[in-house]
């Protein structure tokens, strides 16, 4: 495995209007690694992916992908960079008006002048890699949730990207589809020697496939480490997250005045 650094995030800040979403995030991701980014809902994980993809611009700090600062690229260079990236959206985001085959062929047809016979071979190879070669003629509406995510995975690796981003790839899947997607991510990352970033809540599945984990809470990195370090971690936040405890540093209750006061059982000072 090479140890070339692909993604470097330094002192990244991002605020939406006045709300601070990310506050001084530093990360390094190497080629061939699968990295998980975990955190509660609304902790800025998806925003991080958008920053890497150049969809939004950071307030300060920068994201470097293979040495280039993303937010300083002009439009053409950004689009050229995005051709080397793949992104799997939460529910696949397959083009509903195109068949499975045409979905996977989409980028090849848009960005290359390959002859149709070669596109056909490539598409079937990509579909074979996710085990859906037989479903190439179906429309997205005819697929189950797990299948459409596998097609979307085949589509996003169509041009052999160097960086794959997965936005909650495990959400809403049955246990079988879930481990199929998980092992596909690992296998494809190794086979294509790319870097995969997984944004997820699913601790059990992701800890079994990833090389490194970052925990984000309140816009900062709360903890990071290899899966073994994370499992053994005594840090209260990580412990709560990994073991799925209802109360801890992340409180069960939304901040409120005291219970008695809300129920008007406590005498208030008039």
């Amino acid at each position: 495995m090479t140890t070339e650094t692909l993604v470097e995030i330094s002192d990244l800040n991002f605020s939406y209007n006045t709300r601070v979403i990310l506050n001084g995030v530093n990360m390094t991701m190497k080629r061939g690694q699968v990295i998980a980014i975990m955190g509660g809902s609304g902790s800025g994980k998806t925003t991080l992916l958008k920053l890497i993809g150049g969809v939004v611009t950071p307030s300060s700090g920068c994201v470097k992908v293979s040495g280039q600062v993303i937010h300083e690229l002009n439009r053409d260079n950004l689009f050229a960079m995005r051709r080397k990236m793949g992104m799997l959206f939460q529910f696949g985001a397959l083009f509903t008006d195109l068949s499975v085959f045409d979905n996977v062929a989409f980028q090849m047809r848009e960005h290359t002048n390959l002859p149709e016979s070669m596109i056909r071979d490539l598409v079937l190879m990509k579909l074979h890699a996710v085990g859906l070669r037989g479903a190439h003629h179906l429309m997205p509406a005819e697929l189950s949730g797990g299948m459409s995510r596998r097609v979307a995975l085949a589509r996003s690796i169509a041009l052999d990207p160097m960086l794959m981003m997965f936005d909650e790839p495990f959400t809403g899947l049955d246990p079988i589809s879930l481990s199929v997607i998980g092992s596909l991510i690992r296998r494809l990352t190794d086979a294509l020697e790319m870097t995969s970033i997984i944004v997820t809540h699913d601790v059990r599945e992701s800890l079994s496939i990833v090389d490194y984990v970052y925990f984000i809470a309140d816009g900062v990195i709360a903890a990071h480490g290899t899966p073994d370090e994370v499992r053994a971690s005594k840090a209260p936040f990580v412990h709560q997250f990994v073991h799925g405890e209802t109360d801890g540093p992340v409180p069960f209750h939304y901040p409120a005045q005291t219970y008695l006061k809300d129920l008007q059982l406590e005498k208030t000072v008039a």
Binding site: R82, M85, G86, F89, A93, F106
Partner: peptide, 17 residues
Amino acid sequence: LMKATEQLAAMGMMAVD
């Protein structure tokens, strides 16, 4: 609907306007 189901965003990420 293409926007709501992130198809447009996905297209943008595939470097297609």
